[in-house]
Nucleic acid binder design. Structure first.
Lengths: 159, 159
DNA sequence: TAAGCCATGTGACAATATAACATTTCACCA
DNA sequence: TGGTGAAATGTTATATTGTCACATGGCTTA
């Protein structure tokens, strides 16, 4: 999956690769990649827009599960905690991680027109937050970096 | 008010200066700095932690107003829209702007221990988000930059 | 088997936010 | 002077997002 773009690509690959990577990582780390967790990750991987917890819940219900909110939130918590998904604070929503390695500090580009969200890798100590933290003597533990705007395709068609 | 720190300072000055600056700015821009808006800004300025909309609402009610949620949200929308306050996405909460100029693109350092939030100025096109956006051809309209961690005082006392 | 842990099932509810419509206020101007 | 339009506020209801608490099941291991 490209890290740099809103490019088109074979989307089935996203899903298959993402699931395999998670499976592998869980096996190595002794984590339980249960059917619900797997299904939630699959749902997230199936979409390049972010999904709310209740969107996830709806899809689980369409699968025939009589799921209540904690079911979705628990699975999402697991996925986020172990780096398989990320929470987009600005949207109160979730998206599958685009990278197959473990934990990291992502930044997101959110297109307000097509709703697509792209993830980029960053250095937690770099950028404007890192600069501000150093200046203030602040110890960063977690960062939220999200930009809203127009993706290349939507910016082009708007012009 | 210091832009760089969790420093101690005369807090009444924060309030007085913030209110005066807003008053001035509204007069110049032809905006209505109504009693409710003024009071909400005053409440925000009175605290270096962020406040939720319902915290604000409670304080308005303690003033004797029989205020409903839209009252708080409208005032907050106004203050945020015109740069007198900011929304902290990570906390679903609001904080008074630390700077007296108009619109800008802030970053926030959020101490998870003492709850204080400090604002720093940034360049929207700089940092990790700017880099990612340039690489992807993304047009940034708004950024969210928030770091959670430990402020100097709390980091010191933890060690 | 018993004990313990983890995941899940389930009902209730808390916290955050907005829609929709009525009413008031006030500046502006015919 | 009084109308009129825009902005602000009042009010009811509801939508959306997120958590608590406790019960159940299933698996491991002493």
């Amino acid at each position: 999956m490209p890290t740099d773009a809103f490019d088109s690509h074979d989307h089935q690959d996203c899903i298959a690769e993402g699931l395999q990577a998670a499976e592998r990582h869980c096996a190595e780390a002794g984590l339980q990649f249960t059917p619900i967790r797997r299904r939630v990750l699959e749902i997230l991987l199936g979409d390049h827009t972010s999904l709310g917890a209740y969107d996830i819940l709806d899809r689980l219900r369409r699968d025939g599960l009589n799921a209540q909110p904690p079911v979705a939130y628990r699975a999402l918590d697991f996925l986020v905690k172990h780096g398989f998904a990320h929470r987009i604070e600005r949207l109160n929503a979730f998206i599958a991680c685009s990278h197959t390695n473990g934990k990291h500090t992502p930044a997101f580009l959110i297109c307000r027109t097509c709703q697509r969200v792209v993830e980029a890798e960053t250095d937690p100590a770099a950028g404007e937050l890192g600069r501000a933290a150093r200046q203030a003597g602040f110890v960063i533990e977690r960062t939220v970096r999200e930009a809203e705007g127009l993706c290349p395709a939507c910016a082009g068609s708007a012009a």
